[in-house]
């Protein structure tokens, strides 16, 4: 068994025949048991990469392996994906939503989801469309992290929520992650997630600019990843 959960070789994605590709020649290796930040400005290809790993987009060219396999039914069973937009079905209650996910995913831990929603004070009978935006995002994260997945893909999990909710979300990620699972978090709010990350990947205009550990950047550059990012991506 390889200790890589994710491997890409010259991975590229082009949405149109003309113009710049969304991702170009991406070579990546992500080891199991890491929390990895996927960082880059808007339009750098973060969501495109995540959607290809989730199996929602087909690569234009190149190779993509998840736990040694090409994206498909088998990889979807071990990948838990949190999209960057609301995916709740509004007329369902919190409990309906949890049951629906429990039916859908073999690795879904209903007890864990109920425990987390309980601690958060969410009413199981409430329809999800009536939840506040913050609570909707928390519920979505709970659904994603309640699976015993090998790879969690979190696309902008902390955008648009208040700092206290951000702390809650990070705590939830840290407390549900195990050494057999890998978490890939895309964000541009680096300072908030930096202590939780072990590795970072910088994307710029669809290319990998840098892959490093957080502590290596701090050691070599003498600055935080957040400060380093601002320097690298300065206009």
């Amino acid at each position: 068994m390889s200790d890589l959960i994710l491997e890409t070789r010259a991975l590229s994605k082009r949405y149109q025949k003309v113009g710049a590709p969304a991702l170009w020649n991406v070579d990546l290796e992500v080891r199991k048991g890491r929390i990895v930040g996927l960082l880059g400005p808007n339009g750098s290809g973060k969501t495109t990469l995540i959607k290809m790993i989730a199996g929602l987009l087909t690569p234009t060219s190149g190779e993509l392996l998840i736990d040694g396999k090409a994206p498909g039914t088998e990889t979807k069973a071990i990948v838990s994906y949190l999209p960057d937009h609301n995916f709740l079905t509004g007329w369902m209650t919190v409990e309906d939503t949890i049951n629906y996910h429990a039916d859908f995913f073999a690795d879904f831990r209903r007890d864990r989801a109920l425990d987390m929603t309980g601690r958060l004070g969410l009413d199981l009978r409430q329809k999800t469309k009536t939840l506040s935006k913050g609570n909707q995002e928390k519920l979505e994260l709970i659904l994603c992290m309640s699976r015993d997945a090998g790879l969690y893909l979190l696309d902008e999990p902390i955008a648009g929520v208040d700092p206290a909710t951000r702390d809650y979300i990070l705590q939830t990620i840290l407390s549900n992650y195990t050494e057999n699972s890998t978490v890939l978090i895309s964000t541009h709010l680096i300072a908030d997630v930096e202590p939780a990350l072990e590795d970072v990947i910088f994307l710029r205009e669809g290319r990998i600019l840098l892959q490093s550990t957080v502590d290596d950047i701090r050691e070599k550059e003498g600055k935080s990843v957040d400060e380093y990012f601002r320097e690298v991506f300065k206009w």
């Binding site: 890491r34 929390i35 990070l170 705590q171 840290l174 050494e179 202590p195 990350l197 072990e198 502590d215």
Partner: peptide
């Protein structure tokens, strides 16, 4: 969890 950091850290 207490420090809010990566377990490997």
């Amino acid at each position: 969890l207490d420090a809010g950091v990566n377990p490997n850290t």
